[in-house]
Design a protein around this nucleic acid. Sequence first.
DNA 1: TTAAGATACGACCAGTTTGGTCGGATATTC
DNA 2: GAATATCCGACCAAACTGGTCGTATCTTAA
Lengths: 156, 156
Amino acid sequence: MLRLSKKTDYALMAMKHLASDPRRRAASAREIAETYDIPVELMAKVLTRLVRSGLLTSHQGVHGGYELAQPPAATSVAAVLEAIDGPLTMTACTHGDHECDQFSKCNVRDPLRRIRDRIAAILAECSILEIAADPEPSAPPVRVMSSPAMRRVSAL
Amino acid sequence: MLRLSKKTDYALMAMKHLASDPRRRAASAREIAETYDIPVELMAKVLTRLVRSGLLTSHQGVHGGYELAQPPAATSVAAVLEAIDGPLTMTACTHGDHECDQFSKCNVRDPLRRIRDRIAAILAECSILEIAADPEPSAPPVRVMSSPAMRRVSAL
DNA sequence: TTAAGATACGACCAGTTTGGTCGGATATTC
DNA sequence: GAATATCCGACCAAACTGGTCGTATCTTAA
């Protein structure tokens, strides 16, 4: 499992779309949704969450739409996940609330927290730039730039 | 998000319990369940899944119960996850089936697969031994690495 | 041989989450 | 003022999840 939600998928697709868009104008929810066959209203909902989290800027009106709030290298995949699905918790108790029935007796809390931290690190190190750099279906290959994050990837 | 299910939690707790049990006899579902305040029937269900996946051996009868099928170092956390929740997929299409509506147009499939592989590697590298080596229910305050740190990729 | 302690298995249920839809309000440009 | 946008909240059906129940079967010990 460990599956990420469809909304997160859509969010990442949109972020990549905006990151690799050659023309530097805002893209509307409709445009993105139609490009990837995503229900328009749902795409809109996802995009506004990204705006609220500061990852995108929006402006309304006839030629409005969404733009990245930061350069692609500055936004991590982790940030997108958190924007859509909330804090990256692996268990009910990862966040500090003791609302798990087994809290007092749990014997795997700390080990799991460490695993979670390692996963969080991976997601935090992976930027939208990295996602966008991927040669995708029909998109022309983007020139690979060398940044710390990218070098780490090719090392794997 | 990326939360793992309660059943997986229970499975890991049981595996650790069995791995760190000094006396080398089988533990019953009831014993484990009561130790950690887990509903007995649910614990039983989880344990049988672990048996079916070959991670535990069981035997019935009066002094029956469950035992690790392998030394703790030989079972990975990933194996436990998969035993309970099925293959570790991040998206609908990670496993090869094309059952996602956006399959043909998806622009993040490959990047996500690479991220998934890195996460899978972490889970595969972490063994039950490592989990069991952890000092027990200390219950220290939990500090979540939250937005500011996660939000931006460091030093880019 | 029988009672007790144990796993095995499948059906079931209620609560939550999720993906998706709808209606309407507001802003911006032409 | 019309068209194109974002914004916002309510809503719904389907899927998933945690948990329960009943029953069958195996194994040991008295």
